[in-house]
Structures are given as structure tokens and as C-alpha cells.
Design a binder for these strands. Structure first.
Lengths: 168, 168
DNA sequence: TTCAGAATGCAAAAAAATCTCGATTTCGGT
DNA sequence: ACCGAAATCGAGATTTTTTTGCATTCTGAA
């Protein structure tokens, strides 16, 4: 039985080459991408659209320098909860995710339970955040604050597999 | 004395409204953005270009789902160094930044020195990474591994100030 | 109030994205 | 190795967006 190709999940070397470009800069014209990967612009366009519909590409974003919009401080926070009861974890999860100061939130194994990356305008802004998210939540046992002195590398780019002949 | 506007740094409420849209989706046509913020497409375009030249917008990226390209595991690593000698710190910084498995790297105050966010294909891939980056670097005293069970929120969007009348 | 620089909207030009369609390639089954 | 269905391709037509030029309007300082 043949799976309809339009629904297929695998990525071939063309797809990977295209992703590699778009991860770095999604404003490059399809015609240029086509020249680099040896496809027509139409073919590039079809592949990009499919990867978006497929969910391989999850979004297209402009990245803003936090310092230039009044959020010069980045902080990593490790949060430990009291109880791992599912409903309580979920409540914490939701409150972290909903806060606009929280850029990223990970639920992790190990000593900590959550790792948050937040941006704030000032330390008093961070103080307000701790009240809002941590002191205001009785399920938060403790949290550890790691103030970022240098954002050495930021981004969401993922390492792509070696472009082999076979789809993944 | 009037500073040439083309070099000015401040963002007015139009700029902020535009950033707010582009942070979520930078594929929206300028005509549509213009309708939403009450500007012509040309004005939107000029503002976007200026913010890119200014460095307010640092990049435009497509985001790829790591799991769909063979990197299903995300790990947060805290790294503690032996010596804070500048040249040694710099060497560590560079090796972390250069590794394609390292998505993000922060230099932080507190117990840890670096916080890394890495994506890997498997735990043995992570093992290889620890050899490469940590055991292979004698300045790394110890590292703590926090395996991500749920990527609750990811992204690089920044909270924007209240669109007031005055430029920032 | 006046003035100069800056930003705007409109309209045209240039470029890019999107669509169509016939030709080609790929792929599984025989 | 061969065949046929299905997917993909490239080229060109079409639509849409981006970009530029220009006259006008806005804004802030004197």
C-alpha cells in the first residue's frame, strides 16, 4: 500500500538543505534558495508549504533584541515544587506559560522541576515576577535565580542530520 | 539639536505594534500589518527596514520542530568551571557556542557558571556531547544534567512595553 | 508662528510568491 | 528488468507583495 506522498513525514536531502537555510534566515527568496539547493523556486515553495502544514516548521518569527525594548535583564530560574500532584503541576505549568515575561519554560527531571528563562526590565521587575509566579503559588517550594551576565548564544536552530539520500 | 530620525533609536507605538506582530509571525504581508496598526504598507516597510538596520530586529527565522529532524531530546545543563581566568572562560564560551548541538548558552552568576540548552538525538548522543564539551575541557569542574520532559514554552519573544505615546 | 527635517500616503515599478499544466521522475509490485 | 500509478518537477502565467519616487503632511525647536 502506497501512502499518499502529500502526507508523508520523511524529509529528504532537499528538505534538509532548505531547512538549513530557513533556520538561519527565512527572508531569502525561494528563487535564491532554489539556486543553492538545485531546485526551481516552485519546488522550493511546495516543499516549504508542506513542511509548514506537516508541522516540521513550527513558525516564522522576527527576533527582537530584548535590551532594545526595555528588557535588558535575562534570568534563568530553577523552580522546585512541593507536590508532584498532577493538577498542581498543571496549574504551575499554566501560570508559567501564560506569563509574558517567561520566554521559555521546561519541565525537567532531576533536582529541579522547572527551568524558566525570563526577561525583565529591572531587578525590581524580577522581584515582582517572583511574587507573581513563585510566592503567589503555594506549590512552589523554592527557586534558584541565575542572573545572566552574557547571552553567549541564543536561538532555536536545531542540528540537522547529515543530508543522506534517504528520507528520515 | 535634532538627531537625524533615520539614526534614532527610540521606538514609538507604531514600531512596538509592528514588532508585536512580527514576533509572532513574520510572514504576514505589510499591507495586512498596515491595516492593523493604521499605517500604509510602505510606512510599515520603512519602519521594519529601519529596525533591522538598527539592530532592534536581530533576525528572521523559521523554527523547526527538533523531534521531526531526529533531535527528540532537549537537555538543560549547568556547568561549573574550575578557574574563572578570563582566557579559560573564553575558551569554554567559544567551544560551547561553536557546537551545533548547543542551541543556547548563557553565562550566569550564582552556583553555576554556564547554562546550556542542548538538543540531541539520544542519550548516547548526549554522552558524546559531555565528552566533547565537558570531559574534554579540563576547566570544567562539574556539570548538572536536567533532562527536559516537556517543552512547555519555547520561543524568543520578548515582552514589549505598553505602547505609550512617547518613544522609548 | 515659522521653518527644516522627518515621516506619511499614493502610485508605479520591480521582485517575489503562488498557481497551472504538461512532462519527468520515483517507487512499489510483478 | 519492466510497468503503471502517484508524486514531483520546471517553465511560464498570474497574483500579490515589496520597494521606490515624489508631493504632502506632520513634528519639534527656535
Amino acid at each position: 500500500m502506497l501512502m499518499p506522498e502529500s502526507a508523508r513525514d520523511g524529509l529528504d536531502s532537499f528538505d534538509l538543505a532548505i531547512l538549513d537555510i530557513l533556520q538561519r534566515d527565512n527572508t531569502i527568496a525561494h528563487r535564491i534558495i532554489g539556486e543553492r539547493v538545485n531546485l526551481s523556486a516552485a519546488a522550493v515553495h511546495r516543499r516549504v508549504r508542506r513542511m509548514q502544514e506537516n508541522g516540521v516548521i513550527t513558525g516564522n518569527f522576527a527576533v527582537v533584541d530584548p535590551a532594545r525594548v526595555g528588557q535588558p535583564i535575562t534570568i534563568v530560574v530553577e523552580v522546585e515544587v512541593e507536590s508532584e500532584r498532577l493538577d498542581l503541576l498543571d496549574a504551575a505549568r499554566r501560570s508559567f506559560a501564560a506569563d509574558p515575561a517567561v520566554q521559555q519554560c521546561y519541565y525537567v527531571t532531576g533536582d529541579a522541576d522547572f527551568v524558566l528563562i525570563v526577561t525583565v526590565a529591572s531587578m525590581s521587575g524580577y522581584d515582582a515576577l517572583t511574587r507573581r509566579l513563585f510566592f503567589g503559588n503555594h506549590n512552589v517550594r523554592r527557586f534558584r535565580t541565575l542572573v545572566v551576565m552574557d547571552r553567549i548564544k541564543t536561538g532555536l536552530a536545531v542540528q540537522l542530520p547529515n543530508p543522506s539520500r534517504e528520507p528520515i
